[in-house]
Every structure is written in structure tokens, then in C-alpha cells.
Amino acid sequence: MIVHPLTDDDLANRSDLLTRDDVELLVRSFYRYAAMDELLGPIFAAAHVAWDDHVATLTDFWAWQLLGERGYTGQPLRAHEPVQARTPFADAHYERWLDLFVSTVDEHFVGDIAELAKHRATKMASALRKLLNGEHGAANEPIELTFATSPAAPCASAPTTYGGKHGR
């Protein structure tokens, strides 16, 4: 969701997500939009989100996912279960979350890591939807690891797919 029209200069000045500061800008911008969104905002309000802590945690998470920076601890999918119990997520919530995330990336960034961010967000939304809906894949369903291996080599951080029951 872009709240102001982007000028040609805005578009020309975008760069890739290269630093932790870039990741924090993405996280802060995205959650500002999400908190004010008419569909997602009520979920955040009902969850009584501590925004400073949430932004710090999500910056750690996305810095790990996109830049390979270690520091995030937690289970991102499981962390949403208490919120789901209070305010169940519908398909429209996942779709809106993803639309806002992709739009926020596109508003601020362009490049390989920006594309990786959108890909990882798509995978996260899908995995979260499945988990919270109680869906589980078959034992031999391939899985995709979604962590960056090196900030200097974003192409090397492309997902690796493992098949079979031992890939989990």
C-alpha cells in the first residue's frame, strides 16, 4: 500500500535491501501500513502488540532471512498461534498481509534481495496459513529451507529443496 504517489525520482532512488537499516525501514514501513489497515489493523489491536519489541524481533527475523545475520531466536510460525486463537485469520488476512508486504518492498527497494524478500514472504504466508489451519504435508513432500547463507551472495541464498521424509 503506497500512501503517496511515487515520483520518478522516488523510483529512481530505490536500491536493493543491502543493510540492516534497509531491513528495519522495510519492517517499520510495512507494520505501519498493516497496523493502520482496515482488515489487518484490528488483529494487531486485539493482540496488544508491543510495537518496539515487535519491530526489533521482526527486523532480526528478516535480517536473518535476507542478509544471513544471526540473531533471531524463536519460532515465527508458532508465535502466531495465540493471536489466531483470539482473532482467527481468514484467507483475506493472509492475502492482505502479502499484498501489503510486496507493495512495501516495491515502494522502497528494487533488486535481487528485494525479490527474495517477496518470495520469502509468499512462502511465510503459505506456511502460516497451513499451520494455523491444521494442514500438514505428506511425509515425502519436498520442503524448502528459507534462510540466507551469505549477505554478500544473495543468489547463493536461493532456497534449497529437500525431498523425502528425512528432509524435514
Rank of each mutant, 00 (worst) to 15 (best):
residue 141 E to F: 00
residue 140 N to K: 07
residue 70 R to C: 06
residue 37 D to Q: 03
residue 115 E to C: 08
residue 5 P to D: 12
residue 4 H to E: 13
residue 14 R to T: 08
residue 61 F to I: 07
residue 68 G to V: 04
residue 145 L to V: 10
residue 155 C to P: 00
residue 51 W to D: 08
residue 150 S to H: 02
residue 126 S to L: 15
residue 105 V to S: 01
residue 50 A to W: 10
residue 22 D to F: 03
residue 107 E to F: 02
residue 44 F to H: 10
residue 90 A to T: 13
residue 70 R to G: 11
residue 142 P to K: 02
residue 74 G to N: 09
residue 146 T to F: 09
residue 90 A to Y: 04
residue 82 P to D: 10
residue 41 G to A: 04
residue 74 G to Y: 06
residue 164 G to D: 04
residue 76 P to V: 14
residue 34 A to S: 08
residue 145 L to C: 01
residue 15 S to K: 07
residue 146 T to M: 15
residue 13 N to R: 10
residue 95 E to F: 06
residue 54 H to L: 09
residue 76 P to Q: 06
residue 65 Q to I: 13
residue 3 V to F: 00
residue 17 L to F: 06
residue 80 H to F: 02
residue 31 Y to M: 06
residue 108 H to S: 03
residue 39 L to A: 04
residue 162 Y to W: 13
residue 36 M to W: 00
residue 83 V to C: 09
residue 131 L to V: 11
residue 113 I to V: 15
residue 145 L to K: 03
residue 86 R to K: 13
residue 103 S to F: 05
residue 55 V to H: 01
residue 91 D to R: 12
residue 22 D to E: 03
residue 141 E to T: 12
residue 152 A to E: 14
residue 8 D to H: 05
residue 137 G to N: 11
residue 91 D to G: 14
residue 24 E to Y: 03
residue 96 R to N: 08
residue 78 R to K: 15
residue 16 D to W: 02
residue 138 A to I: 00
residue 45 A to Y: 02
residue 153 A to K: 07
residue 131 L to N: 05
residue 31 Y to Q: 02
residue 4 H to C: 01
residue 52 D to W: 06
residue 8 D to T: 11
residue 119 H to T: 15
residue 134 G to A: 09
residue 127 A to S: 14
residue 130 K to H: 15
residue 121 A to P: 00
residue 135 E to V: 12
residue 32 R to P: 00
residue 165 K to T: 09
residue 5 P to T: 11
residue 81 E to T: 15
residue 55 V to E: 06
residue 132 L to K: 05
residue 56 A to R: 07
residue 166 H to K: 11
residue 116 L to K: 05
residue 168 R to Y: 07
residue 48 H to W: 07
residue 71 G to T: 08
residue 151 P to E: 11
residue 143 I to K: 07
residue 1 M to G: 01
residue 6 L to P: 01
residue 5 P to V: 10
residue 92 A to I: 11
residue 35 A to F: 11
residue 121 A to V: 04
residue 137 G to Y: 02
residue 36 M to G: 14
residue 89 F to N: 08
residue 161 T to L: 15
residue 72 Y to D: 08
residue 111 G to H: 01
residue 153 A to L: 13
residue 143 I to P: 01
residue 52 D to A: 14
residue 78 R to E: 15
residue 4 H to V: 14
residue 104 T to Q: 04
residue 70 R to V: 11
residue 166 H to L: 12
residue 77 L to I: 15
residue 91 D to K: 07
residue 23 V to H: 04
residue 119 H to M: 15
residue 5 P to L: 06
residue 9 D to Y: 00
residue 51 W to N: 09
residue 96 R to L: 05
residue 97 W to H: 03
residue 2 I to Q: 09
residue 47 A to D: 15
residue 141 E to I: 04
residue 122 T to K: 12
residue 77 L to N: 09
residue 47 A to W: 09
